[in-house]
Nucleic acid binder design. Structure first.
Lengths: 192, 192
DNA sequence: AATAAAATAGACAGGTCTGTATATTTTATG
DNA sequence: CATAAAATATACAGACCTGTCTATTTTATT
């Protein structure tokens, strides 16, 4: 039976359990059996929903991509109408993320690292997320009056990814502040 | 017999082979047997030189750390006496690295991702490298007249790590240019 | 040449991994 | 209730993993 993509309780539960373990310990190091034992689900159930571990990982990454972007968008909207505040809200969101319990970096950056071959489906799925984030940033930069919004968004993306890695290793929120301050400076330069 | 740290031809050869495979495919996915087969060395020889795979990885990371910093320092010195040129030379070095054959990102960032637990010896070894790079950047920023060289170096580190991840995924040198231009702008701001 | 050190092959332990097969039981749905 | 779908337990294949052990051979050093 081919793997379905339709949502179902078992499928959702498997994805939630797998996500937790993958994020905590790593994509390669967590085995199918561990996920099944933790979820209390039979092996064939997993393989009826997902053709392979790779497909499970990709499904999780795509789900996290949606959730991530929705979460950021909510924070941006909560910042009100001022376009500068909206852009900087992204960095406030970052700070909250860095401070969250069990923060261990960005699963997408980690996926890029764990599957370093650029042609690998998991690598490509992870990078698509970064592209999508950058597109959202471009809109915010444009609204804030940046002369070259795509270029600024690109630079801010570098800053954000660097901050994520630093926050992961140091387990502090300081990188969010540094990135935020730099973003504010760069935005000022880009609109002057 | 305890693992020695003294350099020897076999030890060096093992480290070179392991480095190549680890960088190409990943730390966790490359097994001891694969390294041995590729190096043409007996298993007991490896385990006489290294107590474990973990120790082998750490030895390689520490070696790469030294080589990395020496390579950057050489490029900086080749840039001459102008302190601004010296700082920006780091980004030229980045560009050359991104363009190199088989570039797959930074093994230290990848190690942070593959061993996401901050207390893990490999994670900590990888982060020490980033700290060391930041210290060198601080010196360059100070020489270039930055008012808060440590803060600027910290920000440039974020930029650099973000650029490395982006260059890895896109397989282009563009992130080096973006980072370089941003670094020049930030330096100007920090010295004004 | 004699001795000590290093490296070798190969088997082995005990565990892990992904994915498949089978036969049974539970759960939905008409 | 009857039928179909989903999920179950369990075993299995075949490969991989790290690290150890032993007995032998090669390489250095004196």
């Amino acid at each position: 039976m081919a793997a379905t993509e339709i949502s179902s309780p078992k499928r959702d539960h498997l994805m939630a359990t797998a996500w937790r373990l993958f994020y905590r310990d790593g994509l390669r190091v967590v085995g199918i059996d561990t996920i099944l034992a933790e979820a209390g689900v039979a092996k064939m159930t997993l393989y009826n929903h997902f053709a392979s571990k790779e497909e499970l990982i990709i499904a999780i990454l795509e789900k996290r991509d949606r959730e991530f972007r929705e979460s950021i968008a909510a924070r941006v909207d909560a910042a009100g109408p001022d376009p500068v505040a909206r852009l900087l809200a992204v960095f406030d969101w970052l700070e909250g993320w860095f401070a969250s319990e069990g923060f261990k970096g960005c699963v997408f950056i980690r996926a890029l690292s764990e599957y370093p071959e650029p042609t690998h489906p998991i690598h490509q799925t992870a990078w698509r997320h970064k592209i999508a984030i950058q597109a959202a940033l471009t809109n915010l930069c444009a609204a804030a009056g940046a002369k070259d919004p795509a270029a600024l968004a690109n630079t801010l993306s570098l800053l954000i990814d660097g901050a994520i890695v630093a926050a992961h290793a140091t387990q502090t929120t300081a990188p969010a502040h540094a990135a935020r301050a730099t973003a504010a400076s760069l935005l000022k330069l880009a609109t002057a």
